[in-house]
């Protein structure tokens, strides 16, 4: 289009300009839509009593890429050192002699090195681990001050401003899912990415799992992918004898997993 110099815009020219600019007007509103996307729904609308979350892990699908452990650290600002993890991936190798070898170098974030020794492999697989968000959480039971608790939607959370740092909860957790934050000096653990859930987003580890080995959703919702997972798989929980009633369900977990 040629624009006439110093002449007022004709009605037709104006419309043409407008139509060309239309795609870009979207950009004006972009921050708003983006925020709506990021924050999914208004948090005020969130009713914790209407939710009951759980996670499924399909061991047959896990490729041990460690993206979940990596994303978890990035999403939740977990210290980078290799001994603080909210989630990590273990590699199990069961030899033909029946011996089990387990490792989790840097939680699996940097991949799993080739085994130098020659183990005669019978079976081998990866197992992602995280806080089991127990319905009967031993960590909550032992917290002396009420600084760790199950929220109304059943997620076990830590109150950073109230935790005294006695570490009793870390001792009480059978899954090694808790650690003492080296800077904050309070207990720290997986929150199921609670800050994402209330905005309608998935936990970061589920978001980035490239093979959908992690399935997340509502237990009580017929249409949730988790319901489907629970319907079509034989699932187990870890250390069931301790009666912690975990809400992380494993499909295809070997008896050696613990």
């Amino acid at each position: 289009m040629k624009k006439k110099k110093s002449a007022p815009l004709s009605r037709r020219d104006f419309l043409i300009i407008c139509s060309k600019a239309l795609p870009f007007t979207g950009l004006l509103f972009f921050p708003f839509t983006a925020n709506r996307l990021l924050f999914g729904q208004e948090i005020d609308e969130y009713d914790p009593t209407q939710h009951d979350y759980a996670m499924g892990i399909d061991i047959h699908k896990c490729i041990g890429c460690g993206r979940c452990a990596d994303a978890c650290k990035k999403e939740n600002n977990v210290p980078k050192e290799p001994y603080y993890f909210r989630t990590w991936v273990e590699r199990y190798i069961i030899s033909t002699e029946g011996e089990s070898y387990v490792d989790s170098p840097n939680g699996g974030i940097d991949g799993f090195p080739d085994l130098k020794g020659d183990i005669d492999i019978l079976r081998t697989f990866f197992v992602p681990k995280l806080c089991n968000q127990c319905a009967n959480p031993p960590c909550v039971q032992v917290c002396p001050v009420g600084a760790t608790f199950a929220s109304r939607d059943g997620v076990v959370l830590v109150d950073e401003k109230y935790c005294v740092g006695c570490r009793y909860c870390i001792q009480a957790c059978p899954y090694g899912a808790r650690f003492l934050h080296p800077v904050k000096k309070v207990a720290d653990k997986c929150t199921f990415c609670y800050h994402r859930l209330v905005r309608g987003l998935l936990p970061a580890c589920v978001e980035v799992c490239p093979t959908q080995a992690r399935i997340f959703g509502e237990v009580g919702l017929r249409s949730s992918p988790l319901r489907r997972f629970l319907r079509f798989n034989d699932v187990v929980v870890l250390k069931p004898a301790l009666n912690t009633k975990p809400k992380v369900y494993y499909a295809g977990a070997d008896g050696e997993v613990r």
Partner: peptide, 20 residues
């Protein structure tokens, strides 16, 4: 304790199921 200055909470809001 990680936060000794908060230890008084144990007397303010003791959790009855906690042995500690």
């Amino acid at each position: 304790l990680g936060h000794p200055e908060r230890s008084f909470e144990m007397f303010l809001t003791p959790y009855t199921s906690s042995a500690m």
